[in-house]
């Protein structure tokens, strides 16, 4: 097999900015970092740089295509003139670390972009960050398995809390094809749930306390210690939101 270090070095050269400078400016350090043989280092140093660029651009193109397709409402909430700069910053900061689940690359990329908007996005994108999180939760609920989760909540149930009322904003986008400009913040807690054996999604608005209870279930840590908490657990049980471990 192509040796592990060589493949990792090539993958980083193609996806992690700054790696190529390291190869060019500090080849010995580069070789040591990936445990490359002299021959392998020679192959990488001899790489046609314009072809390396072409391949790297192809990877970026696919990643951004996933993001655009998975997050249409988010895209419409971001001014078109900001897309290029935002995407460049995203690609620079967030390499395509493997998603946990197979076949989940588009969702994995969308999740990465949503996390980027939340954690590193420039000021002025909190609305887009909320929408991205909501769109990713919808996709994750769509594909999540009710039973194959190590959480107490099934994979078809996803929780989120938001600065804006994303349900209303998202529905408005679906109707009008654009997101309402400058909405008033309205803290929102919700569960996105895929109905069993169907692809229909339902969104349940939650109170902050019920959300907190379900969030603890989602993290696999739950021991109800009040009547309210037991009531939330019963509701989740009745609605089929729990895995066997949670029932």
């Amino acid at each position: 097999m192509t040796d592990d270090g060589f493949q990792r070095a090539l993958a980083e050269l193609l996806t992690v900015p700054g790696t190529r400078r390291m190869l060019d400016d500090a080849a010995d350090g580069f070789a040591a970092r990936f445990a490359l043989t002299a021959d392998e280092l020679g192959l990488l140093l001899g790489t046609n740089r314009s072809r390396l660029d072409l391949t790297a651009r192809s990877i970026v193109g696919k990643r951004l295509d996933f993001v655009r397709r998975a997050l249409p409402a988010t895209m419409s909430a971001l001014p078109a003139r900001s897309h290029q700069g935002l995407f460049a910053d995203f690609i620079g900061r967030c390499p395509p670390v493997e998603p946990a689940e197979h076949g989940a690359r588009p969702i994995g990329e969308a999740r990465r972009f949503a996390d980027y908007l939340r954690d590193c996005g420039p000021a002025g994108v909190p609305l887009a960050a909320d929408l991205a999180e909501y769109e990713v939760l919808r996709a994750e609920a769509q594909f999540g398995q009710p039973t194959s989760s190590d959480r107490l909540l099934g994979g078809h149930v996803r929780l989120g809390h938001f600065t804006f009322d994303v349900i209303t904003l998202y529905d408005g986008w679906r109707r009008a094809g654009r997101v309402q400009a400058e909405p008033t913040p309205r803290p929102t807690w919700l569960a996105v749930v895929r109905a069993s054996e169907s692809s229909a999604l339902a969104c349940f608005r939650l109170g902050e306390r019920a959300y907190a209870v379900l969030d603890r279930l989602g993290r696999g840590e739950f021991a109800p210690d009040s009547e309210v908490e037991r009531a939330v657990l019963r509701l989740a049980q009745q609605e089929g939101w729990l895995t066997d471990a949670g029932c």
Binding site: T2, A11, P96, E98
Partner: peptide, 19 residues
């Protein structure tokens, strides 16, 4: 895929008999 990176690009192998 290599290491923890999923590059999503069909990337060529070094063509040795061993590989």
């Amino acid at each position: 895929r290599a290491g923890d990176l999923a590059i999503g690009q069909l990337t060529p192998l070094v063509r040795t008999r061993e590989h």
